[in-house]
């Protein structure tokens, strides 16, 4: 059994799962220097700074970081980042500079940021995490895909702890590419096997339930309904997916509040779901990322932790 043992939120106007679940008109911006201190932020792109904020919060929340010091061996901690737009600004800006000035006009300080895995590698460096390090740039469903693959790393015994981060930056270039404002924030989770969580006395915030990925929303929901024992107490999904979800349950489209969430969506949904579970949602929360017009749809269920959830899975 895979559990969520930490939640980190770095969203405009929301710095906790509780705030995320209830926010309707959030205001403000994420200030990385206020979270991380100014040291080491120079030359890091916005997406990387946002990712570091979410990572610091989630590691602290999970008890893997105490007073700035790691509490476990970093060689067994994996990092999985989901971001579609992270370094698009650097890449586009550098290309225009080359066209205008030749390559002597570009700054070598942009070199690390030209590689799309910069967020994941900077998180690894800052927190000493030497396990598998992956960056998913997988379109609208990317955030839920990251949770799925994080769980897979644990099931395959590739790691004991997985830090899953979803972030997207806002800037002129990505706005042009997606056709509107982007969230400029994100969220993070720590995933662990139930036994490992119990062994270190971690608080289980949610249990990872069924996952599906397929061509359309209705098919995914039907598959989910077959595998999940309980109907949802609540859901988070794109508005276009709402008609396919069980009627009469409270649900939200987070993009209506925060704008384009892109690769951050699934992870932010998980954080909001945990906010809803903490607030007393009476049953599992279903999550949907991607719609029928995208290349794929992913769904995921987060269940309320029960006393039994802390026990090793009985199969």
């Amino acid at each position: 059994m895979i559990t969520v043992t930490g939640v980190g939120v770095a969203m405009p106007g929301a710095d906790s799962a509780a705030a995320l679940a209830t926010a309707r008109n959030p205001e403000g911006t994420v200030e990385p220097a206020a979270v991380l201190g100014k040291k080491g932020l120079r030359y890091k792109d916005r997406a990387t700074q946002l990712g570091l904020c979410a990572a610091q919060r989630v590691l602290t929340d999970a008890g893997l970081l105490r007073d700035g010091e790691p509490t476990v061996d970093g060689s067994r901690t994996a990092v999985l980042v989901s971001s579609n737009l992270g370094n698009v600004d650097t890449v586009c800006r550098v290309t225009r500079t080359i066209a205008e000035e030749g390559t002597h006009g570009v700054s070598p300080m942009d070199t690390p940021n030209a590689s799309s895995n910069i967020i994941a590698s900077e998180i690894a460096i800052r927190f000493g995490l030497k396990g598998p390090n992956l960056t998913l740039c997988n379109g609208p469903a990317s955030g839920l895909d990251a949770v799925r693959w994080g769980a897979a790393l644990l099931r395959s015994d590739r790691a004991d702890h997985v830090v899953v981060v979803g972030v997207e930056p806002d800037n002129e270039i990505v706005r042009g590419l997606v056709g509107g404002p982007v969230v400029d924030g994100g969220a993070a989770l720590v995933l662990e096997r139930a036994e490992a969580a119990e062994a270190r006395g971690a608080t289980v915030r949610a249990v990872v339930g069924a996952h599906t990925r397929g061509p359309d929303v209705a098919g995914n929901i039907a598959e989910l309904a077959e595998t999940e024992p309980e109907p949802p107490a609540a859901w988070f999904a794109p508005a276009a997916a709402a008609p396919a979800l069980p009627a009469g349950r409270p649900g939200r489209d987070l993009t209506a509040t925060w704008g384009e969430l892109s690769g951050a969506l699934g992870v932010v949904q998980c954080a909001a779901a945990i906010g809803a579970l903490d607030a007393g949602a009476d049953g599992p929360v279903w999550l949907v990322a991607g719609t029928d017009t995208d290349d794929g749809v992913a769904t995921l269920v987060l269940r309320r932790p029960t006393p039994a959830a802390a026990e090793p899975a009985l199969r």
């Binding site: 992956l134 960056t135 794929g296």
Partner: peptide
């Protein structure tokens, strides 16, 4: 994923930028 779906019909694709 978009091009792979169009060409090969699969919706279970993953782009890892590593």
């Amino acid at each position: 994923g978009t091009a792979l779906r169009e060409r090969f019909g699969t919706a279970d694709t993953l782009t890892v930028s590593n």
